[in-house]
């Protein structure tokens, strides 16, 4: 199927993009990497009047370490994130998630900002943002604002980004020596959206995990924090955390798995991701001894 007709405008700057958004109102859609948007256009599932292309805005692309944050420009391609030394050292959770995002050709074109703005509830990167407690930088007519990940995801494909705003960057708190992370997902096939997945972070405090953040994906309308499980895990009781998932998560059925299967997998994810974090504590200790 071919897309319905639309107009096209290249934004030269963020201001230019904001101006075009205001000018065209509701019929306008921002085009980032296009790896989800163009597919939906090709299926005529959406038919915007105009696409405002962000790909020429060089300022939106790049990865830097700034004020204790890893700052990733919205138009930074997944492949750049995957290859970045800064990300590998300071946002290792994102580095661990990246090979699971689509496939090589998709990662060459898809962008982190596009993924966060589209906010597919089964996607890896929104969950990573949530697990890391990162912030989203959003530009609008009145300037730039920062929204914390916990306030960012509003509903199915709904975020804090307004219709007249542009997501410009993601800020992730840089990992410290005490940072722990875990990532695991269960897609039917490599590169697919997961039936259920978990991105987790914590702070190692001796042999225990503190400040646990568990961000599940593929189990709801948005990436979902499992707060009761977080508390249980911080108390050192993995099985209590697994039990707590019953009240934390209420996954709906989808094409690839029933809610019951997702719920079961969520427990498996928790055990395995906790083991990853524990293992990393041990290896950190081993490193200290060596």
């Amino acid at each position: 199927m071919k897309p319905a007709p639309f107009a096209y405008a290249k934004a030269r700057s963020v201001e230019d993009a904001l101006r075009l958004l205001r000018e065209h109102g509701e019929g306008a859609r921002l085009l980032a990497g296009g790896q989800s948007l163009i597919a939906t256009l090709n299926m005529r599932l959406s038919s915007p009047a105009i696409l405002i292309d962000l790909n020429e805005i060089a300022a939106l692309s790049g990865i830097a370490l700034r004020d204790g944050d890893v700052v990733i420009g919205a138009m930074t391609r997944h492949a750049e994130v995957q290859q970045s030394d800064i990300v590998a050292s300071h946002a290792p959770l994102v580095a661990a998630a990246m090979p699971h995002v689509g496939h090589a050709a998709i990662r060459n074109r898809g962008t982190i900002g596009g993924s966060i703005a589209f906010a597919d509830p089964a996607a890896e990167l929104p969950a990573c943002l949530l697990a890391l407690g990162g912030r989203v930088e959003i530009a609008g007519a009145t300037g730039t604002r920062m929204v914390a990940a916990d306030d960012y995801f509003r509903g199915l494909y709904e975020t804090a980004v307004g219709a007249d705003e542009v997501l410009t960057a993601i800020r992730l708190p840089a990992a410290t020596p005490a940072s722990r992370f875990g990532f695991l997902e269960f897609p039917r096939r490599h590169g697919d959206y997961a039936m259920a997945g978990l991105a987790a972070t914590a702070r190692a405090d001796g042999a225990s995990l503190k400040d646990v953040r568990l961000a599940y994906f593929g189990v709801g309308m948005t990436p979902v924090r499992a707060r009761k499980a977080e508390a249980a895990l911080a108390g050192g009781d993995v099985e209590a955390a697994v039990t707590a998932l019953v009240s934390d998560l209420d996954p709906p059925d989808d094409i690839q798995a029933s809610g019951a299967v997702k719920r079961h997998l969520a427990g498996v994810l928790l055990r395995r991701v906790t083991a990853q974090m524990d293992a990393r504590i041990e290896s950190a200790h081993d490193g200290g001894k060596a």
């Binding site: 039936m195 798995a257 019951a260």
Partner: peptide, 13 residues
């Protein structure tokens, strides 16, 4: 033979 069916056969869901 989906993961869901295997889990059901094992009585896990």
């Amino acid at each position: 033979f989906t993961p869901g069916r295997v889990l059901a056969a094992l009585g896990r869901v």
